[in-house]
Design a binder for these strands. Structure first.
Lengths: 347, 347
DNA sequence: TTGTATGCGTTATCAC
DNA sequence: GTGATAACGCATACAA
């Protein structure tokens, strides 16, 4: 009974004895069309089971109401919060998300960017892979003035907006806090320095040391992927150090590496924070579960996501200024928990 | 200098003095076209900065190489693993993902399904919202024979494949394990029974009780959203019970609720597993962090994702059988950890 | 191996 | 308010 042919506005037009143009307008609630015909059109559409064809529309109207999202990995707590925020904000405004991950591989990022362009996304949201070195793969976007918004793993570029937090300041604050708790030999478990986020966390750490006249000890600076295994490895590294060379406080660039380092040390009988204090970054759910609870930096992935999308869409709609805002710095907050409440050792 | 007009196959054709049809074929490496012209076309494309327009192509060829993904929430550890797996499998086969979340709201799910259809996704991957009651919103897909694959939160339907694990069996095993550890008053912290996953976990729990001649105690059956707060609430509920009425073992439908219930009880001085043993579900990262580590059921979200996508795509490509496989049950495994290693109380 | 002609479903433009 | 028509960029049936 049901033809396999697609039902089009022409079918509705024929059904009602009006033109396809009118149907097209009516379906979009164009006020030019009389209220009564609009109603007739809507009814006929429902009756015939009409479902608009988005890309026929896109082809003609030149916009897709689709945003491309390019992330290093989908499956981290932070990133999935960001995506949740993005999806929420986008769908509220009638936009869809097409999502791809680079898996920290710059080549894959290049391919994905090209796919996004071919799908003619109205805008691109991107957090760079660990080893992306330039933005050549985004040139098509820049040339065609398709707005690009960076978030988290950003890269300075004139024509874009970046959504970030003050990584430097937060790291400075965390480190100063550890120092105030009595730490004198501080360690840093950091991420890839090619990415600003991790570089700035390192720099904030270093500056805090300097301001408090403490040394930056190369031996106590480890760069890793910040994974669970990296945390376990770091614990082993610490345990292998002569006791006198061990750190008495560790600032980690994320919570995962912090927690699994703590677990490794605890298993070896070290006390936290008495022997070694800890602080992480992200306020991941595990930070509230590990014992002692992990001091960390809280900032909302969801807000990062909604902010990025809102900014992009308002730019698309021409609501924003002529030029895009260049940088949006979101709030972050130091959350002090037991892992850094070091007992005073000088009594 | 750069026109704002899009560069099309016609531009390439003109540039080379050949027909657009040849260009179209050449770009897709059609072997009909001589190797030399193919090379010329590729070169010209690069030179002119050509970028194919996916939906002009889709309009004509009637497939989009895009899969729709509809999930209750993006930001859970399990779901983001699933999505990561899906994206990996899809991109490997040249497909893209367009992702939306229902936020556990059936109405939003209806809207999203319609959007997906309007975007003419080649297939749909869906995990149902907590309160979805029927599949009417998927009728357009069924009618047009657009393949739909359910995963996790599934719903039986003739024309679809479901990717699941044996929730009943896993729950039965977990519960039996708790009983073997000496638990006699078992509690269940479950999810919405409208969803098979949670219903089956309950049923496996109940059957294990029955088989071991233990009672199912209504008072010790709580249904919740399985959130952190739900865990905290459950702890309070348990603490408010007269000591003699408290459970000596708890089986939770996910790890989040388990862990936060444990934390609440520990804060009140209860010992785990001595006073109350615990088991969860999902093998979430927190299960390896909480003390004692949480006994749980492990199954890979990533495998769920890749399986769902592979199955869908092989169906699209006509590689699979004439009819879709109806149900695929993936492996799950009981992971015994300290939270259920109850001391024997009968010595 | 290549070219011609047409249509996919919609919207923009211009006319009435 | 509504209609006729062209155009969006590409792929395909058919012809050569």
């Amino acid at each position: 009974m049901s033809e396999d042919r697609e039902i089009t506005i022409y079918d509705i037009a024929k059904h009602l004895g009006i033109s396809a143009a009118t149907v097209s307008r009516g379906l979009k609630n164009n006020t030019m069309i009389s209220k009564s015909t609009r109603k007739k059109i809507a009814d006929a559409a429902k009756e015939l089971g009409y479902q608009s064809n988005t890309f026929a529309s896109s082809l003609r109207s030149k916009n897709t109401h689709t945003l491309g999202v390019l992330v290093p990995r989908l499956n981290s707590h932070f990133m999935s919060s960001v995506l949740a925020g993005m999806e929420k904000a986008a769908s509220k405004q009638g936009y869809n998300l097409i999502i791809a991950q680079s898996l920290e591989d710059a080549d894959r990022e290049v391919v994905n960017a090209s796919t996004m362009f071919n799908k003619r996304v109205d805008g691109l949201l991107i957090s760079l892979s660990a080893n992306t070195e330039n933005l050549n793969h985004l040139d098509s976007f820049f040339k065609r003035k398709i707005p690009v918004v960076f978030f988290d793993r950003v890269h300075p570029h004139a024509d874009t907006t970046s959504i970030i937090i003050d990584n430097y300041g937060a790291a400075y604050k965390v480190t100063s806090h550890l120092i105030q708790q009595g730490c004198k030999r501080l360690m840093h478990l950091g991420g890839n320095l090619l990415r600003d986020v991790y570089r700035q966390r390192l720099e904030g750490f270093q500056q805090a040391l300097k301001d408090h006249h403490l040394p930056f000890i190369e031996e106590l600076h480890i760069i890793s992927t910040l994974s669970e295994d990296a945390g376990t490895d770091a614990a082993r590294y610490i345990l292998d150090l002569p006791v006198s060379k061990r750190p008495d406080g560790v600032f980690c660039a994320n919570d995962t590496v912090a927690v699994h380092c703590m677990i490794g040390l605890k298993a070896a009988g070290l006390r936290i924070p008495e022997d070694i204090a800890f602080a992480g970054f992200n306020n991941d759910p595990i930070s509230k579960v590990v014992e002692p609870n992990l001091t960390t930096v809280d900032y909302s992935g969801e807000v990062v996501g909604t902010t990025a999308v809102s900014n992009l869409i308002s730019h698309l709609k021409g609501i924003s200024d002529l030029y895009m805002t260049n940088q949006i710095t979101l709030r972050s907050e130091l959350i002090v928990r037991a892992s850094s409440a070091k007992m005073r050792t000088d009594i």
